[in-house]
Design a protein around this nucleic acid. Sequence first.
DNA 1: CTGCGGTCCTGAAGGC
DNA 2: TGCCTTCAGGACCGCA
Length: 263
Amino acid sequence: MPELPEVETIKLILQKYLAGKKIKDITIRKAKIFRGDPQEVIGKTIKEVERRGKVLIIRLSGNKVLLVHLKLTGQLVFGEPGKTTHVIFDIDGQKLLYNDLRQFGWIKVINKLSNCGLENLGPEPFDQGFTLEYLKKVFAKTARPIKTVLMDQEKIAGIGNIYANEALFASGILPVKQAKELSDLEIVRLKKAIVKILKEGIKYGGSSAKDESYIKPNGEPGSYQKHFRVYQRQGKNCLRCKKIIKRINLGGRGTFYCPVCQK
DNA sequence: CTGCGGTCCTGAAGGC
DNA sequence: TGCCTTCAGGACCGCA
């Protein structure tokens, strides 16, 4: 599922290929995916591609903006339309497809970045606002499991199930541990682990695990799945202590941890 | 305000 | 073999 590293990877590639090009046409095959009037963006030039949390921000001429959320199975990919293609962008004659098997994702046309939902997102893990003080304050306030808090986009932007599991393993913290019960030392370790794991994800171009449909715009998969330490490794040996990795359900999400290394 | 559960959607996997 | 049921999962909505 596209999380911060996957969306960042897509952003970097699209920025390279789309900046300066013109949206010549848009074909909408599934109306609910595309929100807003496509006529407002047809003919506009792409100025810049950015990211906020898991949302892609495509800035256009005339102060128009396209927001894209890929949710679970969305893809932005160059190529020929298939049965899961719901929107087709004609970019100077080249087809950029929005594919989405489960149809949870969306594309929105907006006129300004204020009041568009992005302002409710928490700090970016690579930005200045992501401080130890901020995390201490947020964690101290809630008895929710730490993993649930990590995935709360209003607390921290961009972390989903894969990177929450991996960051908690890397910092030796149990996913079910109440956020307010974390020690200062654990918060320091967790903060470092979040940054490290997300950067690792970006370095490998995101993760394309077995049941996931994430691919890069050029159609190639990412390779971070080869470096998972706990995610989907239930029943296998912990890479650190050799004990069996467990899987539980937490807030409706598959949750993976080592009962020995994580406390 | 918080937090839980239902909802969207499809293919894969499991049960009989 | 094949039909039917169950499940996964990000974010939003309604409710307690």
